[in-house]
Every structure is written in C-alpha cells, then in structure tokens.
Design a protein around this nucleic acid. Structure first.
Lengths: 210, 210
DNA sequence: TCGTTTTCTGACCGTATGGTCAAGATCACG
DNA sequence: CGTGATCTTGACCATACGGTCAGAAAACGA
C-alpha cells in the first residue's frame, strides 16, 4: 500500500504531532461542536502555536474530517466480532461488548460522530451512502439468516441494528447525563459491567436468542 | 398561575413572534449547533431583522435556553403515560409510543437537547440535577415495584430507562443516518409503526413483561 | 561543512458575529 | 386627538475567528 516510510526524527515528530493534534481536536470538537471549536483552543490543548497547527492541517474542516473518519474506522473494526459468529448470542453479544468498550474508551469520538450526523452529515455523507450502507445490508442479511435458521425471533434486522447503535453509543454521547444521575460520579468498572450485562440481557432475550 | 393576560393586538403579536422565533431557533440550533448557529440566520428564518430578534430575546444564550427547556417540558409531559399504568406492558409500552411520536414530531428539539447534553449541559445542568434526577428516581422506584410484584424480570431500572431514552431518541437524533440507510427517503407512516413495534417487542419481551 | 528541505512561530489581515443604539413607526388608551 | 408605551429597523461597533506570510530554526543528505 503506502511506501514504507523511512524512520527519521522528522517522521517521528510528524507522527507524534499529528496524533497529539488529532487527540486534542477530538476533545475540543466533542465539547464545543464544529462551530464552537476554535483552532486556537485546539492548538493550546495540543501545546503548539496556532500557525504551527495550520502547518499540519491546512483548514479546520480538514482536521475535523480526519477526526470523524477515525471513530468511523474504529467502529467498523469493532464489527469484526459480529462475523464468524455461530449465532446471535455470540455475534450480537460480542458486538455489544465491543461497542460498549469503545463508548468508554472513545467517548469524544463518539460525540463528534453523533454531532456530525445530527447536523446532516455534511462531511461524511459519502461514507454513509457507501461504506455504512453496505455494512448495514451485510449485517442485516446475516441477522435474517439467523432468523431463518430459527436462532432468533423474526425481527426487522435494521431496527435491531439501530437499537444496538443507539443503546451502546448512548453511554458515550449522553455520558454526562448518566454521570449526573449517578450522583456526579463516572461509572465504575462494576457499573460499566452492569450496564453491559443489562443491555445484553434485555436485547438477547428480547430477540428470543436466549 | 400567570395572570390572565389581556387580549390585545400587541399581546397577540408578541406571542406569535416569540413562537415563530423559537421555532426558527430550534431548527437552526439543531442544524448548526449552538456555536455554529448565528442570530442572523435565525432572524432570516423567522423573517425579521436581526435587531428586532434581539428585542425579543436579548442574547443568543437566552434564546437557546428557552429552546432547550421547551423540549424538556414536552418529554416530562410524555412521561405521564408512564404513571397510572397497571404494569410494564401498558406503562412502558405507552412511554415508548409517546417518545417515538415526539421523535417524529419534534426532531429538532431532540437534537438540540442531545447537543446540549453532549457538550456537558452548560445551560441545563441544574435541571439535570433537580427535575430529571427526581423524575428518574421516581420511575426507577416504580419499575422496581413491578419487579417485586413479579410483573417483569429483575433488571436494573436505570439501565432500562437509559435504553428507552437512547432507542426512542435515536430516531430523531440520528434521523439523517436512518433516512440515508432507507434509500434517502424519510420513514413512511408504515415504517414508523414498524419501528415502534420493533422497539416495543424487543424491550417488553427483553424485560420479561410478555 | 554547506546547501536544501522541513518545521516552527509571531505578527498580521479580512471577515463575520453578537450585540448596541437612536430614531422612527405603530399601538393603547384617556 | 394626543401622549406615553411598545415595537421595528438600518447603521454601527468591538471582538474573535480562520487563515496567511515571511522569515527564523532545525533536520537532513552529501
């Protein structure tokens, strides 16, 4: 694919810089939205002058686009757990686990994605229409197969997928609300496990897989 | 409660103006976020000069606050269907129906709320800590009672509530994504009904209520 | 070491935004 | 009809923002 880049101090610096900027940008975009985020704030959080930030990412939109695609890639990868599963209990169970873990580990990315979609997906509409559409069709077909094989109740696969996305991402996107209702404290390890188990229990039982 | 306002041309104009502005603001805030929304755009959409908009709502934040509280009130009202229900099938079923209807009827308000919470609820944090916290505790207790009475499986009531919120609001907040995956067309009456039925079927069965 | 390329940075610029203001238009009411 | 209150509006202002640029500093390859 890409030519194997020479290892040099320059390349190392570049990689580390881009990662630091992307991380800062993810956080700022998540907390302020695209419109509310400022290049100055991102630069400050990444610890470099604004002009230097513009050297690595020419425009705000280019930086934003990179951030959005990053979380999308992570989610696509998480769906691997879906495949090669003998049935819904393993496949959907593993998918819920994976998506819940991502919600905990990448709450900012999830929020940026949510914000992007809510605003009409101006930047990643093409992804929705190609990659996501194909992905969804494929998994819907897989779920339908499970239904045909009698491994779960006859449920519209698409609405099930929406439910999986909604429920798992809610713990990232509405994390602040959940935290507030949890007495102002972030969910503990134990509570995250309880959340995962609740979600899995209700959905797997709800689709007649257990 | 409030003193019965005299009916005059002025009062009528004021009410109609405020409603028109709030409606326009809801849409603009939903589509651009608080930071991306401009008073000029809201004014244009409401059909009046920007200076006149500032006459009715002194600051952007004041206008935004009104919009956020509006959707919150609507949701609180929808929860009435929860009460006075003999059991989870009726109570939760009616709640899902109500919230799904709101998602269809007020998608902009839902998005504004989601955006607000995602950004750390800077404007309605007090609501979260008072009204919402009380509301949640009350419903959680009600669900627990149903569990104790053997009307449903023993599930953490809070995670069930999160699931209800997540799933129903997803159809508003991620409506654009759903529309794209639906071939670019908004969900039809029939499809909305299918969505409602799917959600209700999975959750009610998942909690062992049916 | 020397010339070239890449990286860094303070100063700067045009524009758009939230908000103000003063003067005019419209309405309420005695 | 006249007077005060409410409403409307174009012009205006200070600020903050995204983005530019010229030149300094550092890294590279020979």
């Amino acid at each position: 694919m890409t030519a194997p880049e020479r290892i040099s101090k320059r390349n190392a610096i570049r990689q580390e810089m881009e990662a630091r900027i992307l991380s800062a940008a993810e956080k700022v975009f998540a907390e302020a939205g695209f419109g509310g985020a400022t290049m100055q704030l991102i630069a400050d959080m990444a610890g470099l002058p604004k002009a230097n930030l513009h050297y690595y990412f020419a425009t705000k939109e280019e930086l934003y686009r990179k951030v959005v695609r990053q979380i999308f890639e992570i989610w696509l990868h998480a769906a691997d757990s879906f495949d090669n599963a003998p049935g819904p209990v393993e496949g959907i169970g593993a998918y819920i686990d994976a998506k819940m873990d991502i919600s905990r580990r990448h709450p900012f990315g999830s929020k940026v994605w949510a914000s992007e979609v809510m605003h009409g997906a101006p930047v990643i509409q093409d992804y929705l229409e190609t990659t996501l559409r194909e992905w969804t069709s494929g998994r819907a077909a897989l779920i339908q197969r499970w239904i045909d094989e009698g491994k779960m109740a006859p449920i519209d696969p698409r609405h099930l997928l929406y439910m999986l996305w909604a429920t798992t991402q809610h713990y990232a996107d509405f994390g602040h609300q959940i935290e507030t209702l949890n007495g102002g404290r972030a969910l503990s390890d134990r509570q995250w496990k309880a959340a995962k188990d609740s979600v899995k229990a209700i959905i797997l039982k709800g689709i007649g897989a257990i």
